[in-house]
Amino acid sequence: MAVKKIENLSSYQLDVLREVGNIGAGHAATALATLLSDRVSMSVPKLEIVDIKDAAMVLGGPENPVVGILMTLSEDIKGIIMLVYEEKFLNVVIRTLLGKNIDGLNNLSEMDLSVFMEVGNIMVGTYLNALSELTKLNIGVSPPDICADMAGAVMSYPVSIFGMGGDKVLMIQEHFSGSEQITSHLIMMPENESLEKILRSLGAD
């Protein structure tokens, strides 16, 4: 089956994709917990087909201050993977790893930014490893790119990329939260052709 429109995926296929996200996120949550020496719980993954103009809504509204870490997927799976961290989460990360506090997202140091990128790298790496093992597909990933700004502006890049092909985007989304109610989101947006490959590799085409 060719995935021409993501709106046409069956509920079984959506379940399969949700489960794929679940397994990947389980690994990423473990990695994060090890890093922060904290308990990290994970939501049931949300799989949403959203109108591209509403993509920032899932991140607490367009003006919510966040740090976004963007990586581009290549080889068998093409698309974008993004980690979006809310302010409180970043504070816990910096406190745990660097032993200091940050006062807002306006004046992050180079060091803070590279710590976030590295945390992002680790989470995405484990997520994709699990996904790759499950599907037997090769997944290449670019080095991380980072941006601290309003959620809507951070999302504008992936939204524009997907906007070239239509008005809807499939987001496989996870929340991770620690003991302090800190939240981060991992969002994977595969291209339609890659969705097809994932489903085929799992016998759900």
Partner: peptide, 14 residues
Amino acid sequence: SGDDVLITYALGSC
């Protein structure tokens, strides 16, 4: 028109 205010939020590359 009138006294209305139009807002568009969080323009990035848009």
